[in-house]
Simulated scan of single mutants.
Amino acid sequence: MPDSSSELHASNTAWQIAMQEILRIVVRDIYKTGDEGVFRSHIKRIEEAAVDNIYSGLMLRGSDQWTETLVKEKASNFVTTLLTSFTYDKA
C-alpha cells in the first residue's frame, strides 16, 4: 500500500499542475485579445478577484483559525506569483 503522505503530495502536485495549465491557456487567450494595457488590466482584475474570493469565501471545515489563515495566505500568494509570472511580449 502506498504511503499516504506521498500520495497526498502527488495529488497536490497534480492539482497544482492542472490549475497552472488551465490558467496558462486562459492567459494565452487574454494575451491574444489586445495590447499590453488590456492584457495587464485583465491579469490584475483576475488576481484581485481571486484573492478577494480566497479571503471572503474560503472556509475550511474542521480546521482551526490558524490553519485557515495560513491556507488563505498561501493560496493568495500562489495566485499572485502565478499571475505576475506572465509577461506581455509580442515581438
Score class of each variant (00 low, 15 high):
Met1Asp: 04
Pro2Thr: 10
Pro2Ser: 06
Asp3Phe: 05
Ser4Gln: 08
Ser4Arg: 05
Ser5Ala: 01
Ser6Glu: 15
Ser6Gln: 11
Glu7Tyr: 05
Glu7Val: 09
Leu8Lys: 03
His9Gly: 02
His9Lys: 15
Ala10Val: 01
Ala10Trp: 08
Ser11Thr: 08
Ser11Arg: 14
Asn12Tyr: 10
Thr13Glu: 13
Thr13Val: 15
Ala14Thr: 09
Ala14Glu: 10
Ala14Pro: 01
Ala14Gly: 03
Trp15Ser: 04
Trp15Thr: 06
Trp15Cys: 03
Trp15Glu: 03
Trp15Asn: 10
Gln16His: 04
Gln16Phe: 07
Ile17Asn: 04
Ile17Phe: 03
Ala18Gly: 00
Ala18Met: 03
Gln20Arg: 05
Glu21Cys: 00
Glu21Asp: 07
Ile22Lys: 15
Arg24Asp: 11
Arg24Ile: 02
Arg24Leu: 05
Arg24Gln: 10
Arg24Glu: 08
Ile25Ser: 12
Ile25Asp: 13
Ile25Leu: 13
Val26Asn: 12
Val26Trp: 04
Val27Leu: 04
Val27Tyr: 04
Arg28Val: 08
Arg28Leu: 14
Ile30Val: 15
Ile30Lys: 08
Tyr31Lys: 13
Lys32Pro: 01
Lys32Cys: 02
Thr33Gln: 14
Thr33Pro: 01
Gly34Asn: 03
Gly34Met: 06
Glu36Cys: 05
Gly37His: 14
Gly37Ser: 15
Phe39Leu: 13
Ser41Gln: 14
His42Cys: 13
His42Trp: 05
His42Thr: 05
Lys44Met: 05
Arg45Ser: 12
Arg45Tyr: 07
Ile46Gly: 07
Glu47Leu: 09
Glu47Trp: 06
Glu47His: 07
Glu48Ser: 10
Glu48Asn: 12
Glu48Arg: 11
Ala49Ser: 10
Ala50Tyr: 03
Ala50Trp: 01
Val51Leu: 02
Val51Asp: 07
Val51Met: 08
Asp52Val: 07
Asp52Phe: 11
Ile54Leu: 06
Ile54Lys: 00
Tyr55Gly: 02
Gly57Pro: 00
Leu58Gln: 03
Leu58Arg: 02
Met59Ile: 01
Leu60Asp: 04
Arg61Gln: 12
Arg61Ser: 14
Arg61Thr: 13
Arg61Ile: 06
Ser63His: 15
Asp64Lys: 04
Asp64Glu: 10
Asp64Gln: 04
Gln65Asn: 12
Trp66Met: 11
Trp66Glu: 13
Trp66Cys: 07
Trp66His: 12
Thr67Glu: 10
Thr67Ala: 12
Glu68Phe: 05
Glu68Met: 14
Thr69Asn: 15
Leu70Met: 13
Leu70Ala: 09
Val71Arg: 01
Val71Met: 02
Val71Glu: 06
Lys72Phe: 00
Lys72Pro: 01
Lys72Thr: 01
Glu73Pro: 00
Lys74His: 01
Lys74Trp: 00
Ser76Lys: 01
Phe78Asn: 10
Phe78Gln: 07
Phe78Pro: 00
Thr81His: 08
Thr81Arg: 13
Thr81Leu: 12
Leu82Ser: 14
Leu82Thr: 06
Ser85Tyr: 06
Ser85Arg: 09
Ser85Gln: 07
Phe86Leu: 04
Phe86Asn: 08
Phe86Met: 08
Phe86Gln: 09
Phe86Arg: 03
Thr87Asp: 13
Thr87Ala: 11
Tyr88Cys: 02
Tyr88Met: 01
Tyr88Glu: 00
Asp89Asn: 14
Asp89Ala: 13
Asp89Phe: 07
Asp89His: 09
Lys90Met: 08
Lys90Trp: 08
Ala91Ile: 13
